[in-house]
Amino acid sequence: MAPTTQTPPSLRPSPATLAITRIVLIAAAVLFLAPVYWLIVSSTKSNPDLISSNGLLFAGNNIVENYTALMSWTQGNFWRWVGNSMLYSTVAGVLGTLVSVSAGYALAKFRMPGKAGIQLAILGGLLMPIALLTVPLYIFFNGLGLTNTIWAVIIPSCVSPFGVFLGRMFVDAGVPDELLEASRLDGSGEVRTFFTLVLRLLAPAMVTIFLFIFVATWNNFLLPLMMLNSAELKPVTLGLYGMMSYFSPQYGAVLQGALLSVIPLVVLFFVLQRYWQSGLTAGAVKG
């Protein structure tokens, strides 16, 4: 990831390699962003314009009307719902990442009785379609008095079997036993070793797991649909679904809502960028 200037001269890629690489990356970016571009264009249109004008060109300016419609359809709750989504996704992401990495660390570095069984059970959790578990989960959470609270969304969202497998993989690859031994010989306790050494080594991996859980929580629909009743608690995705479940939604308003709700994600992505790169890889530590 180091910039070109740091590359030793002998390793400078040939101009041809460089050109091909850039073309591939840019072409891929165009393909991935083209639908997003359509989203931006469409969020400025009225319903009839969406049908009658070229989808790739701007036609008429309906931005203000769409924003007004968005606020009206969401009963003025739109930004509150964005805030709810931020809260749920952040808390679930942070808790989920810690829990996953901690569990992955246990599986990777400790001889535990019943380990094979555990891993099979986690895999089993991954195999069952989550949508089908939502109703039993709802009834169970209702018994615990958790439904219609933020925990009804956060607790299930922070449990990520895949996160545990990823965590295990990253610990296997990025946390050398020698470093752990050294830390223990220094008299550092297990918990301290985990928080000061292991988590630091795993920073880039944790960013990845965090992002996965964060986005999955943000976009989850069925769970909040079942668990939450109060309009004050809704996440923004649910609100957008609500606008769409009517026969004739104002598409421009829904699309604008989607775009506005993606902005926090984009900001988050760039903020996390720092941790991604600053993560100490095992090689750097050893070297």
């Binding site: 400790f110 986690i122 959790g125 039993p136 449990v159 079997p161």
Partner: peptide, 21 residues
Amino acid sequence: IGWGFFAPFAILFVLTFVIPI
């Protein structure tokens, strides 16, 4: 120790996956 590190996930997993499954 291993189970200690695994326990938080285990509890949550039982609550949200094992029981509904």
